[in-house]
Structures are given as C-alpha cells and as structure tokens.
Design a protein around this nucleic acid. Structure first.
Length: 656
DNA sequence: TACGGGAATATTTTT
DNA sequence: TATTCCCGTA
C-alpha cells in the first residue's frame, strides 16, 4: 500500500502582509486588484502612495517577477522612495521592480532599441539648458547678420517643446504666445527644422525626443511593442492627472496586450498644464478601456478637519472640477490662519519667529515647510533664516546642476566622453582668455576635420595668444582616456584645471567651489562617466546653490519649496507666503480661465500639504520694478473665501 | 576678433 | 534682478 504524507501546498499563497488590517476598504480594493485596467482617484492625503506601495508588495507576493512590474512616477525620487517602502514592507525583491519617470524609462528602452529609430545606443540626453544652447548654435546659423527682432534661444526652446507636448502647430503657438514674432515664423520654423536634424546628426535627444521616439518605436514596431508589453506586464502610473498627450499614448501602447494598467491620480491636483499635462487623460482612461474599474479614495489621513474644510472650500469655487469632499476622522485642530503683515521683511520676521516657537513646542524643523509660488519669492526670507541660524534646504527654482560653474565643469566631462560635442566645445573654449566665438568655431571645425585631435600632439601656433591655453585644454582632455579611470578621477582633473578659471571669473568663487566639491562627492558614486552624465541630465540635482549648513543632521532642516516641488509631500506645519494678487496667482495666469483654474488647484495642493497647522501670509506692500513701493491686494483666492473658514490676524510689533 | 560696458528684456511652475 | 544682447573700442 502506498504511504500517504502531507506536504505544504505551495500553490495556495499565504500572504505575509495583513492587507485587510492595514488598509481601508477602498485602498484594499485597489491593492487586491491584480489584472485588468483600474483608475484610482485619490484625493490629497488619502494614502495614495501607501496604496501603491502595498500593491507592489501584493503583486510580488503573488509571485509576479518584480522585473515584470513597471512603476512610473513623476520624479525618480518618488519611485525610489516607494520601492524602498515596499521593500521594507515585504522584502528586497521589491527593489527589483522597474521604477522611474517616463523620461528615464524612455531612455532605458531607447538605448536598447536605438537602431530602430536611427540612433546609436550611446546618444546623449540634453537637459533644458543644453537644448537651449544647441538651439543657439543653429539660431546664429539661420540668423546670420540679420538683426531683426528674433526670439531668444530659451523662447525658441519652450516653443519647440510646446509644439511636441501640446500637439499644436508652431504658427498657432507663436500667434498665441508671441504675436510680435509672427513676421518671422518662417525663420523660426527653419531653426526648428535645423535643430531636429542637428540632433539626429549628433546623436542628441532632448526631453521631448525621449517621449516622442519611444512612442514612435511602440507604434511603428508591433513586435517590439509586444515584447515590451510582455516584459512590463503590470504597469502602474502615479500622478496620472499630470501626464501629457505623449505619455498617455505611450501607456496605451505599452499595455495594449495585457491591459494591466493601474493609473492613480487626482484631477484636483493637476498643476503641470504649462508642460502639456492633460486632466482629460484620466477621464479618457475608462473610454479607452471600457472594463476599467474605478476606485475612489476619499478618507484623508493627513490633515485636521479645519484644514480639510479650507481645502474643500477652495475647490468649491472651481468652475470645472468634479465636486470633491475630503473628510477625516481626526478630531480637533486649529483653523488655518491668514496673517497680514506690513512689509516683506515683517513677513519674514514673523515666519522666523513662528518657526522658533514651533521648534520650542517640540515640532522638529523637518516637520515644517515654507511654500511659495515662485522660487524667487523666498529671497528675503532666506536672509532672515540665515541671520537666525535656522538651517534650510530649498527646492525648486534654479537647479544646482543648472548653475553656470557646474555646467562648465560638466561640459569638460562630456568632451571626454564625446569629442564631437560642439556645444560643449563652445562652452569650454569661451572660458579661455583670448578665445571668442570665432576662434571657438575654428577649433570645432579643426576637430571635426581631424586637423586637431585629442590625445596626440597638435600644432596650435595658428591660434596666436590663445594657443597655450587651448593647448592646456587639449592636454586635460587627452589625459582622460589613459590615466583617469573613474568619473571622480576625471572630475578631479577637470576641477584642478578649472579652479583658476573659476577664481578669475566669479567674485563668489569660494561658494561655487563648494558646489563643485559636492559634485565630486556625487561623481564618486558612479563607475561610468556615461551613467553619471545621463543621470544628471535626467534628474537634475535638486537643492539650492546656497550652501546648506552641513553641521546639522539631516532631519533637522527646514524645507523651503515652490508649491510645484512640494507635490506629494507633507509637513505638520506649512507656511504659504506671498498670498498676494500678482504673486499667487502671477499676472500671466490671469489672462485665461484655464490658467486661473490651474492656479487654484495649485493653491489647493499647497494647502493640503499641511497636517496640523496651515498659515498663510501676505504683506500689504511690495516693491515693483517700475513703481517702487506699491500697495498689494490679497490674492483673489483669499478674497473669495468665506470669512469664518480661517482666522484672520494682523501682525503688530511690540517691545520684548 | 575679443571684450567690456551699458541697454534691453524677460521674470512661474519642471522632466 | 540677472541674464542676454548690442555696440564701440582696443
């Protein structure tokens, strides 16, 4: 007789995570949803990230290979953070999930299939300033001697980008945004055309190209589309309300086979319209996938009820959004405060003083943030914070890696990688004494024709007094290949070379030098120069140029941030400064209803960052360029609020 | 051809 | 306010 024994049935999965206990009903429904399309509409603070994190874990627990899961987020930081949390929740397998932005994902895929779109796998990625510099190159070609008024490189770049992201014609956009340039639209078109071919010839892609070519690849090669569809069998997209047309199409192509798409978003938080974001993408999803399940998360876990009431009122005044009502089970809490100060300085002093009081009460600096509409709005406050020795980190505005000295140094590194990069040659050569555009051009041509070559001895005698400095540049670039093996080594050599140039060019050289040392510590994490440079292009280093006081441990730093950069984050205490007409919203936005609506959503995003205390401030006076000191009006968003939704205060000065 | 000085110009948000 | 543009001078 056969002996019968028991063995564990491994085909029945037992779960390590107690999903039912740790999630609310709606969240649970979203997490347990495995196959097929789903749209999760998640209000602010309703545990959207938590839901995504648990869903990643759940899929992995369901034995779906992590490599087959794709998590697309708005920043790479967000993706990393979610996967880290999933790994803590479950185990290290979650770290193997593919996560990143649309752009970083596109980069990865395009490298793999570069040949299909006529590129080499080593193409480089242009960040915004690189793109503008490249445009400048063709711009001068097209323009020649003519001195008719013509858009600047940055204007051109934003125009070209809008053409791609908004899917509109160049002439339409020129007419709408820059009617003064309607007369030269043909030449603008010519620059656009040349820019396109220039990029192709030199193996360059800007941000828009990454999306454009990925979509093209998916649409033109069904085999590749199927292959990728199988590989990324489960796709999750965060912040769907801020995807643009191209990104939406990419998603549709990618999930065409398996239809496993989970999109998460909140139409009330769409704030990237200027970049082509379309709320409609979210609304379209059920039309594209009729079997799409719709799940709403409405219970808020972040804020107190008075803050939510305030936020709800903001949306009530919106003309186009679906009514939305956030609620919480949290009891109590103060009403938001609206504080009028006389001047900007008084506003800053008030904030500093309040921060100190909150710290006194035991709220750590890391739980406090000051938000504002535009990066430059915090200038005065930054000075006051420095005086009070409150350490802070600033997000938004000019990026660390966009600063001139950083770009200078990176240009040298790019030449080490790719000696045919004309834009970098220009940048690097113009740093030298006695070298102007003409000489730079000569050098670029000589390199292209092989008359000059990095890594061998050259004859520079024709360059007159600039000869010796050009020679030392070539010596530096020639060094790289043989003697320097890591990105950090290479950067170190560049810094040695660049140091005297820096001190000669900038009064604040020491501060900039500190930035460069920071850059060195970042480079140290990389093995290959290529990866280092691409990462910097795809994910410009956040944070201000202002040296963050390095003394204090990281948790003890105050956050200053634009509202845009604060998206998805939360703090116990949130200040929102400059709630003044013309600052929030800015004047340009007031020209159209759509843009005003976006500003309103932005205001909503700002207010829903606060967990316990929300404090809005506005000075009664401000300086304007033309008129000097002028009186302000409170932001229209404040004026339309019912009086009892917040407490109103006026700052009065008193002796100690 | 380089470069300095002064004028013009844009100035919201970001991958 | 800071960068870019334009022009005259060396």
């Amino acid at each position: 007789m056969k002996k019968i024994a028991l063995q564990k049935d491994t085909t029945v999965t037992t779960y390590r995570i107690h999903y039912e206990q740790e999630l609310n009903a709606a969240q649970l429904e979203a997490v347990l949803h495995t196959d097929g399309p789903a749209l999760i509409i998640a209000g602010a603070g309703t545990g959207k990230t938590r839901t995504l994190v648990y869903r990643v874990a759940r899929l992995v627990e369901n034995r779906i290979p992590p490599e087959n899961i794709l998590l697309l987020t708005f920043t790479r930081k967000a993706a990393r953070e979610m996967l880290r949390r999933a790994a803590v929740l479950l185990d290290g397998r979650c770290q193997r999930v593919m996560g990143g932005t649309f752009h970083s994902f596109a980069y990865l895929i395009l490298r793999r299939f570069a040949e299909f779109i006529g590129f080499s796998p080593n193409f480089s990625v242009l960040d915004q300033t690189d793109a503008a510099d490249t445009i400048q190159l063709v711009r001068t070609e097209v323009l020649g001697k003519q001195k008719q008024r013509f858009p600047t490189k940055e204007t051109l770049r934003s125009l070209f980008s809008a053409v791609v992201n908004l899917q509109r014609s160049l002439s339409d956009l020129v007419e709408e945004r820059y009617p003064q340039f309607l007369g030269v639209v043909d030449r603008i078109e010519e620059v656009a055309q040349r820019y396109r071919t220039y990029k192709q010839q030199h193996q360059l892609m800007d941000y828009d190209d990454l999306l454009l070519y990925l979509l093209q690849l998916l649409q033109d090669y069904p085999d590749i589309r199927r292959q990728l569809g199988n590989e990324f069998r489960y796709v999750m997209v965060d912040e769907y309300q801020d995807t643009n047309y191209l990104q939406h199409q990419i998603v549709i192509e990618l999930v065409a086979e398996h239809r496993n798409i989970v999109a998460v978003g909140d139409d009330a938080q769409s704030i990237y319209g200027f970049r082509g974001a379309r709320i409609e993408n979210m609304q379209d999803l059920p039309a594209v996938f009729p079997e799409c399940r719709i799940i709403k998360l409405e219970e808020n876990y972040r804020s107190t009820q008075p803050i939510l009431n305030f936020a709800n009122v903001i949306l009530q005044n919106s003309v186009e959004l679906f009514p939305k009502h956030l609620y919480t089970r949290k009891q109590g809490g103060d009403k938001p405060a609206i504080v009028k100060t006389e001047t900007e300085q008084q506003q800053s002093q008030y904030i500093v003083q309040q921060i100190l009081e909150f710290v006194e009460e035991g709220i750590p600096l890391s739980e406090i943030a000051v938000l504002f509409r535009a990066a430059y709005h915090s200038m005065d406050l930054e000075i006051e914070l420095q005086k009070a020795r409150i350490p802070f980190q600033k997000f938004g505005g000019l990026k660390f890696s966009e600063a001139a000295h950083i770009k200078d140094v990176l240009a040298h590194l790019r030449l080490m990688l790719n000696p045919t990069d004309a834009v970098s040659w220009h940048r690097v050569l113009l740093l030298l004494k006695g070298v102007g555009p003409r000489t730079a051009q000569r050098v670029v041509e000589a390199v292209a024709s092989g008359k000059l070559q990095i890594g061998r001895s050259n004859d520079f005698s024709s360059f007159g007094k600039a000869a010796s400095s050009i020679e030392s540049l070539f010596r530096l670039l020639g060094k790289s290949a043989t003697e320097l093996s890591t990105p950090a080594d290479q950067l170190f050599a560049v810094l040695e070379y660049y140091r005297p140039i820096l001190w000669d060019r900038y009064d604040d050289a020491q501060r900039r030098w500190n930035d460069l040392e920071t850059l060195l510590s970042i480079a140290d994490r990389y093995e290959h120069l290529e990866g280092f440079l691409t990462d910097i292009a795809l994910e410009p280093i956040e944070g201000s140029l202002e040296a963050v006081q390095p003394v204090s441990p990281e948790e003890e730093i105050l956050t200053l941030s634009t509202v845009h950069s604060a998206k998805g984050l939360e703090w116990k205490v949130v200040f929102l400064i400059w709630m003044v007409d013309g600052r929030f919203p800015p004047p340009q936005a007031q020209e159209s209803i759509e843009r005003m609506e976006e500003e309103r959503r932005l205001f909503y995003v700002a207010c829903t960052r606060a967990k316990e205390h929300l404090i809005l401030t506005y000075p009664e006076q401000m300086y304007s360029r033309e008129h000097g000191r002028v009186l302000t009006l409170p932001s229209p968003f404040l004026q339309e609020l019912p009086p009892d939704i917040a407490e109103h205060y006026i700052v009065v000065e008193s002796e100690e």
